[in-house]
Each structure stands twice: as structure tokens, then as C-alpha cells.
Deep mutational scan, measured.
Amino acid sequence: METPSQRRATRSGAQASSTPLSPTRITRLQEKEDLQELNDRLAVYIDRVRSLETENAGLRLRITESEEVVSREVSGIKAAYEAELGDARKTLDSVAKERARLQLELSKVREEFKELKARNTKKEGDLIAAQARLKDLEALLNSKEAALSTALSEKRTLEGELHDLRGQVAKLEAALGEAKKQLQDEMLRRVDAENRLQTMKEELDFQKNIYSEELRETKRRHETRLVEIDNGKQREFESRLADALQELRAQHEDQVEQYKKELEKTYSAKLDNARQSAERNSNLVGAAHEELQQSRIRIDSLSAQLSQLQKQLAAKEAKLRDLEDSLARERDTSRRLLAEKEREMAEMRARMQQQLDEYQELLDIKLALDMEIHAYRKLLEGEEERLRLSPSPTSQRSRGRASSHSSQTQGGGSVTKKRKLESTESRSSFSQHARTSGRVAVEEVDEEGKFVRLRNKSNEDQSMGNWQIKRQNGDDPLLTYRFPPKFTLKAGQVVTIWAAGAGATHSPPTDL
């Protein structure tokens, strides 16, 4: 069977082979063929449309019947899901209200924590001031004790010197008594010597008188005998007598002179000795008097100093007792304040721990409710997609609110971060928990396990030699990294520990 286009092609070929045509004729024939082709295509399209309309009418009838069946089946399910969705919305509203209440309680707890922290800071300042005052008082007490020990040692030294001076005074008084006794003995010996000298002088005078009498008696006897002796021998006898008398007189005078000289010499020697002894004793007595006077003056001065030191010692002891009493009071006050502060800190920690436990429990309940609501929403969306139902505006708002919801909680030295990733086909969620104590904190952990970043959050360098970082993902083997023995993380510095297959460059001390 030939198509209209094939017939047109045969006809035009025959005409062209029979007679030659002009260009205008050819153009018109071409346009006519195009119109015929378009008409044929339109006829085919109309036939196809008619057949499709016939099929569409049958399909519409089948769809109508199916919609009636589906509407009867879905009406009950939709009512049940609407009821469950209403319950879920009520639960979500109650959870939102509970969350708002918990946020209010958390803000209240934070305000109480700030207030307690301020009070604690003030108490710590008072405690530091009390400890500083206690240290000052202890230093003052130590200085006073040192001064007291010095004063006591000086007192003992002065008492020793006073005892020595008293012994010296006793010795000097004994020496003075001995000197006085020697002086009295010398004076007695001097008086005795003077008496003996006077006696010797009297004896000498008496001997002179006796010698004169004997001489006169001898002259008288000789004169008497001379009268009786011969005149011839008188001159010879007289001359001999005169010579004998002269010789006797000379001898007697020599003896008297020698005895006189010896007596005067002895007397002068004894007198000089007595005078020297008297002068020496008088000098000793003067020196003893002077030394005794000086000793008395020094004793008086030392007694005055001793009394002054005793007064100072009594004042120091009184002040020391006052300082000890004040120190005891300060210690009791400090202990009482410290006990009160520790009790308040313990109560505050217990209260904060209780509130944190309650908040953690409520947060766990909220997370469980969020997971249940998310599961209900997934089931509802799956059924709506299976039944090709359009979601209600309320469910769209709930989905938008659930997809944009995120929370971040800080308290008790722990930080909890939650992130949620969404897509049109599926939804997944993960959470990161970080707890830090000390100078070094974990700043970031790569989700794909490529690196771990640490930061020194203090103002001092931290030695991290032979420290270890351990990481384990589920049931995978435990991964451990040990820092070099001499590694030190500077204040405020960040160090990144890269995985072996991350392709990073080893560049200490920032990249390991």
C-alpha cells in the first residue's frame, strides 16, 4: 500500500520526466506537497488523539472507580493518622512548653550560679585577705619572738655582767678592808717605831748622862790618885790618861755616831717603808674607792637598764599575749569562714548537680520524644507519598520547624553540640559531646576521622611529652597517638594531629 507522500513523489517524478517545469511551478508544487504532507500528518495525529481519548475515557472510568475504592479505604486510615498526628502535635506542644519551662529554669539556675559564684569570689577574697593578715600577724609574732629572745639573751648577759660586777665589788671591798687593815698595821708599826726611836733617844741621852757622870767620876778619881802619885809620874800619867780618855772618848763617840747613824738609817728606812706603804695603801684605797664608785655607777646604770628591759619585756609579753589572742581570734574567724564557705560550696555543688541531673533527665526525655515524633513524621510522609496525598499546611510547618531545630547546652564543665543533616530522600543525625578539664581542650574532631585539633586555653605553657590521644569508632580497633617526649604546647597555641592517610605535612609544633 502506498502512502500519500509516496504517491506524491511518483506523480511529481512522472511529471518531471514528461515535461520540463518552470521554477515558479516547481515552488508551487513543492508547497502543495508540503501542505498535503501536513494534512496527512494532521489526520494521523487526529486519529491518534481520538484513539487516546477513547483510551482516556476508559481510564477515567477505571480511575473513578479506583478513586471511589481508595477514598473509602483512605478515609478511615486518614482519620486514624489525623488523630495520631493531633496527639503528636499536642505532645510536641507540651514538649515545647516543657522546653520553655526548662530554659526558664536553666536561666534561673544560671543566675543563681552567677550569684553564688560572686558570693564565692567575695568569700575567697575575704579568705585571701584573712590569710594575708594571718601571715602578717605570724610574721609580726615571729619578729616579736625574735626581739623577745634577743631581749632575754641581753637580760641574761646583763645579769651575768651584774653577777661578775658584784663579785668584783665584793673582791674590791675585801681588798679595801685588807688595805685598811694593812694601813692600820703600818700606822701601828710606825707609832711603835716612833716610840722605839724616842726610847732609843732617851736611852742615848741617858747613856750620855751616865757616860758624863762616869767621866766626871773617873776624872775625880784620877785627880785624887794624881795627888797621891808622884809628881814625876803625874805628867806621864796625865798624858797617858788624856790619851786613853781621848781614845776612849773617840771610840765611844764613834760607837755613838755609828749607832746613831744605824738607828737613823733604820728609822729612815722603816719610815720610808711605812710612808711608801701608806702611800701605796692610800693609792690602793683611792683606786679601790674610785673603782668602787665606778662599779656603783655601772651597777646603777645596769640596774636602770635592767629595769627598763624588764619593763620593755613586760610590755612585749603583754603585746605578745594580745597578738596571740588576736591571732587565735583571726584563726577561729578564718576557720569559721572557711567552714561556712566550704559548706556553702558543697550545698551549691549538690544543688547544681541535682539541677543538672534533672535537666539531663528532661533533655533525655525530650530527645526520646523528638525521635518518636521524627519516626511518626517519617511514617506519615511515607504513607502520604504512597497514597499520593498532598501534605497539610500544618504538617509542612511542623516539618520545617523540625528541620530547622537545633540545640546547644552548656553546664557543669560540659558542652553538647547537636547537628542535623537533612535531604529530600532520607534524614540522618549525629551528636558530638566534649568534656574538658585542665589546660588543654579538644577544640575540633573531624567527622571523617582525618584530624584532631587541641588548644592550650591557659596562659601558661603545658608540657605534653609522652601524652596519648586515643580514638575509637564503634567496634573498630583503638587508635592511639603518643606525643614526642619533649613536646610543649605554648599558651594559646593550637596543635593538629593528622591521620596517616590524610595527606598532611608533618610541621611541628602545629601539625603532627
Score class of each variant (00 low, 15 high):
178 E>F: 02
178 E>Q: 07
178 E>N: 14
178 E>A: 05
178 E>I: 15
179 A>D: 11
179 A>C: 03
179 A>N: 14
179 A>Y: 15
180 K>V: 12
180 K>I: 01
180 K>A: 08
180 K>D: 09
180 K>F: 06
180 K>S: 02
181 K>D: 10
181 K>T: 09
181 K>H: 15
181 K>S: 03
181 K>N: 01
181 K>P: 11
181 K>G: 15
181 K>F: 08
181 K>V: 14
182 Q>Y: 09
182 Q>M: 03
182 Q>N: 08
182 Q>F: 15
183 L>T: 02
183 L>K: 12
184 Q>C: 03
184 Q>A: 13
184 Q>D: 09
184 Q>Y: 06
185 D>R: 09
185 D>Y: 15
185 D>L: 11
185 D>I: 11
185 D>C: 15
186 E>Q: 08
187 M>F: 07
187 M>P: 01
188 L>N: 02
188 L>R: 00
188 L>F: 03
188 L>I: 10
189 R>V: 08
189 R>L: 07
189 R>T: 07
189 R>W: 09
189 R>A: 06
189 R>Y: 08
190 R>N: 09
190 R>F: 10
190 R>E: 03
190 R>D: 01
190 R>W: 01
190 R>Y: 15
190 R>H: 14
191 V>F: 06
191 V>L: 11
191 V>S: 04
192 D>T: 12
192 D>K: 02
192 D>R: 02
192 D>N: 00
193 A>K: 11
193 A>Y: 05
193 A>T: 13
194 E>R: 15
195 N>E: 02
195 N>W: 05
196 R>C: 03
196 R>F: 00
196 R>K: 07
197 L>A: 12
197 L>D: 04
198 Q>M: 07
198 Q>D: 01
198 Q>I: 00
198 Q>C: 09
199 T>R: 08
199 T>A: 01
200 M>V: 09
200 M>W: 00
200 M>E: 02
200 M>G: 00
201 K>Q: 06
202 E>Y: 08
203 E>Q: 07
203 E>R: 02
203 E>D: 01
203 E>H: 02
203 E>P: 01
203 E>N: 02
204 L>N: 14
205 D>S: 14
205 D>G: 08
205 D>C: 12
205 D>R: 06
205 D>M: 03
206 F>M: 04
206 F>Q: 04
207 Q>E: 02
207 Q>L: 07
207 Q>Y: 05
208 K>Y: 02
208 K>R: 05
209 N>D: 08
209 N>P: 02
209 N>A: 14
209 N>H: 04
210 I>L: 05
210 I>V: 13
211 Y>T: 12
211 Y>N: 15
211 Y>D: 10
211 Y>L: 14
211 Y>E: 06
212 S>N: 04
212 S>D: 13
212 S>I: 14
213 E>F: 05
214 E>G: 14
214 E>A: 14
214 E>T: 14
214 E>M: 05
214 E>Y: 06
215 L>D: 10
215 L>F: 14
215 L>A: 00
215 L>M: 01
216 R>W: 07
217 E>M: 08
218 T>N: 14
218 T>A: 10
219 K>F: 08
219 K>T: 14
219 K>D: 01
219 K>N: 09
221 R>C: 08
221 R>D: 07
221 R>A: 11
221 R>W: 15
221 R>P: 13
221 R>V: 12
222 H>C: 15
222 H>A: 05
222 H>R: 07
222 H>N: 13
222 H>Q: 11
222 H>V: 13
223 E>R: 07
223 E>Y: 06
223 E>A: 06
223 E>H: 12
223 E>Q: 15
224 T>F: 06
224 T>Q: 12
224 T>P: 01
225 R>C: 02
225 R>W: 08
225 R>V: 09
226 L>R: 08
226 L>Y: 08
226 L>N: 12
226 L>S: 12
227 V>W: 12
227 V>Q: 14
227 V>D: 12
227 V>L: 12
228 E>T: 09
228 E>W: 01
228 E>I: 01
228 E>H: 02
229 I>T: 07
229 I>Q: 02
229 I>R: 06
230 D>N: 00
230 D>F: 12
230 D>E: 03
231 N>M: 00
231 N>A: 09
232 G>A: 05
232 G>C: 03
232 G>S: 06
232 G>M: 05
232 G>N: 08
233 K>V: 11
233 K>Q: 10
233 K>G: 11
233 K>S: 08
233 K>I: 00
234 Q>L: 11
234 Q>E: 15
234 Q>N: 13
234 Q>M: 03
235 R>Q: 11
236 E>R: 01
236 E>I: 09
236 E>P: 06
237 F>P: 05
237 F>G: 06
237 F>S: 05
238 E>K: 10
239 S>Q: 02
240 R>I: 13
240 R>L: 15
241 L>G: 10
241 L>N: 09
241 L>K: 11
241 L>T: 04
241 L>V: 09
242 A>H: 08
242 A>N: 05
243 D>L: 10
243 D>Y: 11
244 A>W: 00
244 A>D: 11
244 A>N: 05
244 A>K: 08
244 A>H: 07
245 L>W: 00
245 L>V: 02
245 L>Y: 05
246 Q>W: 10
246 Q>L: 00
246 Q>V: 02
246 Q>A: 10
247 E>T: 11
248 L>M: 08
248 L>N: 02
248 L>K: 01
250 A>E: 09
250 A>G: 15
251 Q>K: 08
251 Q>T: 12
251 Q>R: 12
251 Q>V: 10
251 Q>F: 01
252 H>V: 07
252 H>W: 02
252 H>F: 08
252 H>N: 09
252 H>M: 09
252 H>A: 12
252 H>P: 06
253 E>A: 14
253 E>M: 07
253 E>H: 05
253 E>Y: 03
254 D>F: 11
254 D>V: 06
254 D>M: 13
255 Q>V: 07
255 Q>D: 11
255 Q>R: 01
255 Q>L: 09
255 Q>T: 06
255 Q>Y: 13
255 Q>S: 08
255 Q>F: 08
256 V>W: 13
256 V>F: 11
256 V>I: 08
257 E>D: 02
257 E>W: 12
257 E>F: 14
257 E>R: 12
258 Q>N: 07
258 Q>E: 15
258 Q>H: 10
259 Y>S: 02
259 Y>R: 07
259 Y>I: 06
259 Y>V: 09
259 Y>D: 04
259 Y>H: 04
259 Y>L: 07
260 K>C: 00
260 K>S: 07
260 K>H: 07
260 K>V: 10
260 K>D: 03
261 K>V: 15
261 K>G: 12
261 K>W: 01
261 K>F: 13
262 E>T: 10
262 E>G: 15
263 L>V: 11
263 L>N: 02
263 L>K: 06
263 L>E: 03
263 L>D: 01
263 L>Y: 08
264 E>G: 05
264 E>N: 15
264 E>A: 06
264 E>H: 06
265 K>R: 15
265 K>C: 13
266 T>R: 06
266 T>V: 04
267 Y>Q: 05
267 Y>D: 01
268 S>M: 08
268 S>R: 15
268 S>W: 15
268 S>P: 00
268 S>N: 15
269 A>T: 14
269 A>F: 10
269 A>V: 08
269 A>M: 15
269 A>K: 06
270 K>S: 11
270 K>N: 11
270 K>F: 08
271 L>H: 02
271 L>F: 06
271 L>D: 06
271 L>M: 08
272 D>S: 13
272 D>Q: 02
272 D>K: 08
272 D>G: 06
273 N>Y: 07
273 N>H: 09
273 N>K: 05
